[in-house]
Nucleic acid binder design. Sequence first.
DNA 1: TTCGTCATGTAATGGGTTACATGATTAC
DNA 2: GTAATCATGTAACCCATTACATGACGAA
Lengths: 175, 175
Amino acid sequence: MLEFAILGLLLESPLHGYELRKRLTGVLGPFRAISYGSLYPALRDLQARGLIAETSPKPMPTVTTKRARIVYEVTPAGTERFTSFVANPGPEAWEDERFAAHLAFFASTPTEMRVRILEGRRARLQERMAMLRESFRHTSERLDPYATQLQEHGIDRVESEVRWLEELIAAERSH
Amino acid sequence: MLEFAILGLLLESPLHGYELRKRLTGVLGPFRAISYGSLYPALRDLQARGLIAETSPKPMPTVTTKRARIVYEVTPAGTERFTSFVANPGPEAWEDERFAAHLAFFASTPTEMRVRILEGRRARLQERMAMLRESFRHTSERLDPYATQLQEHGIDRVESEVRWLEELIAAERSH
DNA sequence: TTCGTCATGTAATGGGTTACATGATTAC
DNA sequence: GTAATCATGTAACCCATTACATGACGAA
């Protein structure tokens, strides 16, 4: 998850951790910002696996030394990993978080794959909606009005995401 | 989270783990069902803390022995814990999961508290929306259209939840 | 007799968080 | 000189999950 978001952002341009986190926050939405306690270990892990590397040569170690900031860039292996991520969405690609990660980097995803991901997500949601309605049928009679409201709202939310997906798919088809 | 859901359901009637899980699924929505790997440890934990207890006397150990199922009921301490949960929503009550847990047991929550929780949630969402819009202003220019779509959809979702909350608050005020 | 469901549980793992610790740089 | 922000990192914990293991019961 985090792994792909990092690779995707570093492919646009090499960055150091602190800046990277700000970009991540921009992409993922500010309320679910990644903490440094996740980010830095993730960076070291990616480096250990050879998917990213430190851009070594500090251009000018003259006056402004600052705190040594470690700028990472994506290695060829990392690039390959990222493209394979966008190219074959695994079975988890329809889950909420994965899907968001895919969508965030749709710009670097081929068109047919975009459609496939969007439709996969839609299918998943419709499945989910069926389950929601089914469980709603079973429980609504004996549930208090608040629990009922909560369930109805859940259904509404899924429906509205399906409509949104349909717009995206239509837009994609019309190039 | 799970803790309160368990207490809330057991207050309605004593249950064993397996059945409890089905009810939980009914309340929380079927797609985010609690796994046994979470439920059973949670039950033992609650028991260890004296908030629930096994309803000891098996009525008839005659023919139908079945697999020994362990039925739990809420102790007075557990009842107290639950009422204190519904009565003073902590600062986390406006978070997604907590809020859902509160709403699920609104029926056992006094009216003024209901309004307070709903309004707290609304305030939290409006804050969130301000952050989303703010971050959107900063990044939208240089973001690709897909990332933009994703962010706009995020804003839409929050807006629609605010409208929903407003309906609930209005309904609450008009008794 | 085998399959589905009821029923309880453990161990390993996942994917993060919070709190803490450090220190350098910038702006007032 | 002090506060805010930039910048990196560690350790402890949280709250769940998945995969596994066990076993009894009812129905086909």
